[in-house]
Design a protein around this nucleic acid. Structure first.
Lengths: 103, 103
DNA sequence: GCTTTACTTGGCAGAATGGCCAAGTATTGA
DNA sequence: TCAATACTTGGCCATTCTGCCAAGTAAAGC
């Protein structure tokens, strides 16, 4: 088992790699299978260089595999449980109620 | 079902709320049950005001419940699947190999 | 009512992140 | 070999995030 400190650092890297609207959109788009960078650029709506950097960050965190075929680079998701986690997150309601006290 | 844009924003808020070493440590500490702020301050090792801000951010994202009893405020985790997700994340290996191409 | 304790919030400065533009690299077709 | 295409990387600037310090608030004990 890896060192707790290393494990925490890796967890942070993965979570940070998801903690941005464009990268979340990328992860969601890749649920249905691999896509190339220009596909993802169209989905995300940002500059190609920006998308490329997001993809690199996600890949270095271990979230994605990449495969170059001709001119295109294809990315696919490596994390099998993301959708479970996202659905679980969807069940959370942000805190809006006033703080309760006592019991 | 909520609007896709709102759902994505909520997902982002939750993931961002976890994307920091101190907040990850808080989430891990709360797996075993509720804790008060000064407990969590000892675990995280940051200033009390810093920990308090992290807790507020996590609560507003929907990750935590809070309960004031006397002088102490107790926090508990609301997200049941975090540990599953963390363990899944632990199974990912960050990308170190050179990029492969072709097939 | 005052003091102590636990916690929250405001202010500010520094660190980290993310955008675009431009340049660079690799691959492919002519 | 050259041009076109897909993609990556460097540079710079703006935005966001996070830390500490100090001040503020609420609850409890005396």
């Amino acid at each position: 088992m890896s060192k707790p400190a290393t494990r925490a650092a890796r967890r942070i890297a993965v979570i940070k790699a998801l903690a941005h609207p464009s990268r979340l959109a990328i992860a969601e788009a890749l649920q249905d299978g691999e896509r190339c960078v220009c596909d993802l650029r169209d989905i995300v709506g940002a500059d190609l260089s920006t998308v490329s950097k997001h993809l690199t960050l996600m890949r270095k965190a271990g979230l994605l595999d990449m495969e170059k075929r001709g001119l295109n680079v294809f990315y696919r998701l490596r994390c099998p449980c993301l959708m479970n986690f996202f659905e679980c997150v969807d069940g959370l309601i942000p805190d809006k109620a006033p703080r309760k006290s006592g019991k």
